[in-house]
Simulated scan of single mutants.
Amino acid sequence: MPFTLVHVGKPALEVLLTIPGGLLFGALALRGRSMLGPFLLHWTLAASVDVWVNLGGLRADWRRPAEQYQGDRREDSQIKRRYDVGV
Score class of each variant (00 low, 15 high):
Met1Trp: 06
Pro2Ile: 07
Phe3Pro: 00
Phe3Lys: 00
Phe3His: 07
Leu5Pro: 01
Val6Ala: 13
Val6Thr: 11
Val6Ser: 07
Val8Ala: 04
Lys10Met: 12
Pro11Asp: 08
Pro11Gly: 05
Ala12Tyr: 09
Ala12Trp: 14
Leu13Glu: 09
Leu13Gly: 09
Leu13Trp: 11
Glu14Ser: 10
Val15Lys: 02
Val15Met: 05
Leu16Gln: 04
Ile19Tyr: 13
Ile19Val: 15
Gly21Val: 00
Gly22Asp: 01
Leu23Val: 15
Leu24Ala: 15
Leu24Phe: 15
Leu24Lys: 08
Leu24His: 03
Gly26Ser: 07
Gly26Ile: 02
Ala27Trp: 03
Ala27Cys: 01
Leu28Met: 12
Ala29Arg: 00
Ala29Ile: 00
Leu30Asp: 01
Arg31His: 12
Ser34Tyr: 07
Met35Gln: 02
Leu36Pro: 06
Gly37Asp: 11
Leu41Lys: 04
His42Glu: 04
His42Trp: 04
Val49Trp: 07
Asp50Cys: 13
Val51Cys: 03
Trp52Ile: 06
Trp52Tyr: 15
Asn54Phe: 05
Leu55Gln: 12
Leu55Asn: 08
Gly57Tyr: 07
Leu58Thr: 01
Leu58Val: 05
Ala60Met: 09
Trp62Thr: 10
Trp62Glu: 10
Trp62Ala: 14
Arg63Cys: 06
Arg63Glu: 10
Arg63Gly: 04
Arg64Asn: 03
Ala66Gly: 00
Ala66Pro: 00
Glu67Pro: 01
Glu67Gln: 13
Gln68Gly: 03
Tyr69Lys: 07
Gln70Trp: 13
Asp72Trp: 03
Arg73Ser: 06
Glu75Lys: 12
Asp76His: 14
Asp76Gln: 12
Asp76Leu: 15
Ser77Leu: 14
Gln78Cys: 02
Ile79Glu: 09
Lys80Arg: 15
Lys80Phe: 13
Lys80Cys: 08
Arg82Trp: 11
Tyr83Met: 07
Val85Ile: 14
Gly86Lys: 12
Gly86Asn: 11
Gly86Cys: 08
Gly86Phe: 14
Gly86Ile: 08
Val87Asn: 07
